[in-house]
Each structure stands twice: as C-alpha cells, then as structure tokens.
C-alpha cells in the first residue's frame, strides 16, 4: 500500500499548526498581544502618567498637588540648587560611560576575536558573575575597600604611594577624607557596577565584524591604529552606543551608590527618591525623572546624526 499524499492530523497540535499556516496573523496576534499589553499599559502607560504629573505643580501652602497644567515645576528645575543636581549627575554619567567604554573595549575585543572554548566560557563567567551577587553587598564591600583603613589605603601606605591618593583627594570638586567619601569613590563604584552592561553589547558587536574586514584593511595598507579608527570602531559603534545607553542611563537613575559612597551630594535619582517620599512633591520628582529621558533622546539623536547606526 502506498502512503497517502496528505497525512492525517494527529491531534490538536497538528490542527493548530495548520490554522497558523493558513492564517499567519493569528499566530502573530497570539504572540504579540501579551507583551504589547505589558509594554503598552505598564511601561508606556506609567511613563505617560509620569509625564502628566510633571506638568502639575504643588500648592506651596497646603502641599497638595493641583491638577492644572503648568510649567512652573520645570521652572523649579532651573533653580541653582536643583540645576546643580542635574549637571552633577550628567557629568558623572558621562565620565562613567567613557571610563566603562575604555575599560570594556580591550576585554570585549579579546573575547570577540581571540577567546575560544574554555576561555570564552571563562570570559562570560567572569563578566556575569558579579551580576549574580547582591548589588548592596557589592556597594558596601566597595565602601570598605575605599575607606581610609581599607585595602587600597593600606596598600598605598605600604608602597609609600599615599601621596597619590592624597593628591587626588585635594583636587577641587573631588575632596573627601578618603576615597569612599569622595566623588572619585562614587565614580569608581559606578564603573565597577555597570561595566558588564558595556562589555556584553560591545563584545556582541565586535563579534559581528568579520575577520576579512580587518584583513582587507591591512591588505590595503592600513596600520592597526588606522584599521581601528576606520573599520573596527565604525562597525562596532552600534554596540558601543548600546552599551553606553546602559551605563549612561543606569548612572542617571541610580540613587543608592551616591547615598552610600561619596560626599552625599545629591544626584537625580536621590532627588527623585527624596521628593516623592519625605517631601511629597510628586510633580517635581516627575520633572526630575523626565530629564534622563530627554537626555537619552538627545544622545540617541546625536549618535544617529553621527552615523552610529549606519552599519546596522
């Protein structure tokens, strides 16, 4: 007996597969509805609520939010005490991003180009492992490391290099009794905590640059530095941008690290935390929270203008 040209359906799975084959949109709808609901309602919805709040203002006498549209709250952002917070946070985020990029690139390049087998596994483990332990434990550990009596101070004393730390701590703007109470400490801990978020997208981007591109550039007479500038960096730029979005926006929004490490100067995240909590000024907290969103939009627009996504 010959086999039939059409095989009988074996059950529900076969019939469903058939249904999806005849109506591809049904499958698409089934797949997309839950995440779109989540994204649309929970993410974008709350973002819209936030945006709305930022256009309200608080009544100075009663402390009650008046539901009238006004730009008064945004005007308050420009008050020197508030504006300082914005500038401080943006400078910190920019410095952290640049330092993370500089630290991450050699590691990501090695992992993408040379690491194979066990070394690759070791790379992923080494980058991911710090992410598995508690954020707070790591930050407090750093507080001890950076403290005057900590390992860095101890090592500096033993090698008679304490003058380097003292010199750094006497630079205006970076003052502190030790690294753990100086903005330098805040910067170092931010770099440590966010570095994996820079390495991973960079490594993924570098991995997609074919070896033949590098060979072609050398073949045409480019030195290593020229190949890096004209071929590797432009092709890896989307990954660098992706990584910098992580480090930049995570630093813009963090409110724990500057509370524990550093000179207790206010950052955007801390301001939001205090305003919505003890101060009860939700509109100003919302206005503060809108700033990182605007900064990221401007940053992305600039990156796009510079051709960062041309290679995508």
């Amino acid at each position: 007996m010959t086999a039939p040209a059409i095989l009988p359906a074996r059950g529900l799975a076969d019939r469903l597969t058939g249904l999806f084959w005849r109506h591809p949109r049904v499958l698409l709808a089934l797949l997309l509805t839950p995440p779109l609901l989540w994204l649309g309602v929970v993410y974008l919805g709350s973002l819209a609520a936030l945006l709305l709040q930022s256009f309200y203002a608080i009544d100075e006498f009663s402390g009650v939010v008046k539901e009238e549209f006004t730009l008064k709250t945004y005007g308050e952002l420009l008050r020197p005490s508030n504006f300082d917070i914005l500038v401080r946070t943006v400078i910190m985020a920019a410095c952290v991003t640049l330092a993370c990029a500089a630290l991450a690139f050699p590691i990501a390049y090695y992992a993408a180009r040379y690491a194979r087998g066990h070394w690759k596994a070791a790379f992923y483990l080494g980058v991911m492992l710090p992410l598995w332990s508690s954020y707070l434990v790591k930050v407090y550990a750093w507080k001890l490391i950076l403290a005057k009596e900590g390992i860095i101070g101890w090592a500096a004393e033993r090698t008679h290099t304490s003058w380097i730390i003292d010199g750094l701590l006497s630079i205006p703007g970076l003052e502190g009794s030790s690294l753990s109470t100086s903005p330098l400490g805040t910067f170092a801990v931010f770099c440590y905590i966010w570095l994996p978020y820079m390495i991973l997208p960079m490594q993924a981007a570098l991995e997609r640059v074919p070896t033949s591109m590098l060979e072609a550039s050398a073949d045409l007479g480019a030195t290593r530095a020229q190949a890096f500038r004209t071929v590797v960096l432009p092709l890896a730029l989307p990954g660098v941008i992706a990584g910098s979005i992580f480090t930049f926006s995570l630093t813009l929004g963090d409110y724990i690290i500057p509370q524990i490490i550093g000179n207790s100067a206010n950052f955007i995240g801390m301001a939001v935390y205090q305003l919505q909590g003890t101060a009860g000024n939700i509109p100003l907290a919302a206005a503060f929270a809108v700033v990182p969103i605007l900064i990221m939009l401007v940053y992305l627009a600039l990156a796009r203008r510079m051709g960062a996504f041309d290679a995508l």
């Binding site: 074919p210 033949s212 591109m213 060979e215 072609a216 550039s217 073949d219 045409l220 004209t230 071929v231 432009p234 092709l235 051709g307 041309d310 290679a311």
Partner: peptide, 14 residues
C-alpha cells in the same frame, strides 16, 4: 605591495 580580492569581497559596509 600586493593586494587581495577576497572571497567574500570584504567591502566595508559603512
């Protein structure tokens, strides 16, 4: 002073 035409051409996409 030799140049190569690569198998996958290796043109720079950007």
């Amino acid at each position: 002073n030799v140049n190569t035409v690569f198998q996958d051409y290796a043109l720079f996409p950007h």
